[in-house]
Design a protein around this nucleic acid. Structure first.
Lengths: 344, 344
DNA sequence: GGCGCGAACGTAAACGTTTTCATGGCGGCT
DNA sequence: AGCCGCCATGAAAACGTTTACGTTCGCGCC
């Protein structure tokens, strides 16, 4: 209970507190012999430096804050895992604040972290330039994850939604589908916007004769279900549907099956995210996978880099790649092989 | 850049630092008028108290640490969400350290948190009584999640795996299956042990003529697949199989389907956890659901309670209940209704 | 042998709060 | 009118480190 301080160690080892500090930190400035003795005493006494006192004088918390939105399960845990892994590798601590749903909520969470962190990792839909300027102390190293904000003051790491969506649409066209429709995500969602842009770009480039066919959605299974019904009701039913995320694809799948359609024979389907469920629906869903662990890891390394050399201008990390996961719903030829692989 | 301190506020408001401190914290001991003026100046100057300095003098970090193992995605994020929600409601911060796979790893993570937290939330397979005594400073409020450790010094919150497994087995017996087999989890896993005990208890009580039939597993899909094959190779094939978790149930399902068996007509199947995938496999998997968010929330409240009145003896919270989710694989009669409900 | 220099170590200031204690003023009671 | 006590306020100590700056000592070189 009686917390023991550096003074206790100093007294027990017959040295001054300064020497104890030197021995335990740098190690330079003390004899190898005394250093040894001090360390010995310290561990015998189970001395643990008072973190707050150290922070106070050092002006370093060795902690990074992570501000995350109310995230879908799988994505969240993978992201945290990546961040945490990288943080521990660098001896940094991780202060998290997740599941805030309003802008005010996020602002409060952000302010609460003030002074407890050396840098911030922020991922949130509510975050824009004004928000950051209002709630972030200037000079605090900050990296934005999946954000549309473009400001020299912040690092940004984004998934290359545009290129990935484009690639998936191209794939669908390549395997023979002409009339590819798209189920959009929430309007104000940056990921969703980029994916839609990717869809439109691919259509414009590789299927210029077909008009883009976009129906509304909001990333929920429910919306996917409705969008599926809407697409089936169209005069000219699309031959393939690309949903802006897997949840909507799953909902869409229900609508198709309800209508008695087989996939991919009657209609093809693809999603985005490769959530675990994608493998287990039947037929297994073709989708686009993002390496989320790497995203988190990279985000942390980025903020750590800024931390280490503040002069160094904020490096905008290259956007992250994804990979096309070919399962059964997209009607590609190499179905069997791909499916087996994805199960192993 | 120039961080502004309480002194700056004091000077600007023509008061002493003591008054500023009082005005910003308790509010008592200072005129309403001066208090107002001070708060005004503080917010104009965008003053934010230096957390470390406050911790140093207060000996309170207002932070609790969470030590978590390498957890399966869904479970992890739900748990964190619950913890985080409760923490923010109480104005506490959350320092997380996850995905450590060895005991040494966990010890290092634990030690690194020393002095940065007021209390700990620990969930890990590697944690036993000796480990805690060696790595945890005595007197640090600690709550263990899903742990077999019984020590008056720590709070413990467990899922009632035993009762839930027992209930599921009873359900399988109730709907007419006689010969219920069990696929076990890892031997050293506490959850797995409890679930197996629940299985054995239910069999002993409600199907005393049938010998328990347990095959080995380790919570992976792969193990479930092998266990499924093993069960099919038995002289007398079981009429129902209860897997210790959903992942193994899914693997088992693959084995059954590979053998041309239909579920539930030819053989029934049930899992544990209600991971999202359970709804999407076909046929949808009957399983046992645990309210993980509540588990996390409750764990945090528990440690916060200890924090607030240290005298109060550590309350061992009652174990958490679960619910039986009846879908299609268990062959119960009310399939349609239940399925519809679970999708809504 | 003295002088200077570097290494080992000690002293004390500084970090930004909270909190205890002292001080002064003001109002109410006798 | 005088005194007591309360309340707002200020001064200063304390929290446990790190680090700049002295001080001492030993050693090599002139």
């Amino acid at each position: 209970m009686a917390t023991i301080t550096i003074k206790d160690v100093a007294r027990e080892a017959n040295v001054s507190v300064a020497s104890v500090s030197r021995a335990l930190n740098g190690g330079s400035g003390v004899t190898a012999e005394t250093g040894q003795r001090i360390r010995e005493v310290a561990s015998r006494l189970r001395y643990i430096p008072h973190a707050a006192a150290r922070m106070l004088i050092t002006r370093r918390t060795n902690t990074i804050g992570a501000l995350l939105p109310d995230l879908y399960g799988e994505f969240f845990s993978e992201l945290i895992r990546g961040i945490d892994l990288a943080a521990r590798a660098r001896g940094l601590h991780l202060l998290v604040s997740s599941s805030h749903d309003s802008s005010d909520d996020a602002a409060a969470a952000l302010r609460a972290m003030q002074g407890r962190v050396d840098g911030m990792l922020i991922m949130s839909a509510h975050v824009d330039d004004a928000f950051l300027r209002a709630n972030l102390p200037e000079g605090l190293p900050t990296v934005l994850i999946n954000s549309a904000v473009k400001n020299k003051a912040y690092g940004v790491i984004n998934v290359d939604n545009y290129a990935c969506a484009r690639a998936m649409v191209k794939h669908l066209l390549d395997v023979g589908h002409k009339n590819v429709a798209f189920i959009a995500g929430p309007e104000n969602n940056f990921d969703a916007q980029q994916r839609e842009k990717g869809y439109r770009a691919a259509m414009a480039k590789f299927a210029s004769k077909i008009a883009p066919n976009v129906v509304a959605g909001d990333f929920t299974e429910e919306a996917g279900y409705r969008a599926g019904q809407e697409l089936l009701a169209q005069k000219k039913r699309p031959s393939a549907v690309f949903a802006a995320n897997d949840m909507m694809a799953v909902g869409c799948m229900h609508a198709f099956r309800e209508a008695g359609l087989r996939m991919p024979q009657d209609i093809a389907l693809a999603g985005f995210d490769d959530i675990p469920v994608a493998r287990y629906v039947s037929p297994p869903l073709s989708t686009v996978r993002v390496r989320i662990v790497d995203l988190g890891r990279s985000a942390l390394e980025s903020v750590a880099t800024i931390l280490e050399n503040p002069d160094h201008q904020v490096a905008v990390r290259p956007a992250f790649g994804c990979e096309i996961i070919v399962r059964e719903t997209c009607g590609a030829s190499r179905v069997a092989a791909s499916h087996k692989k994805s199960l192993s």
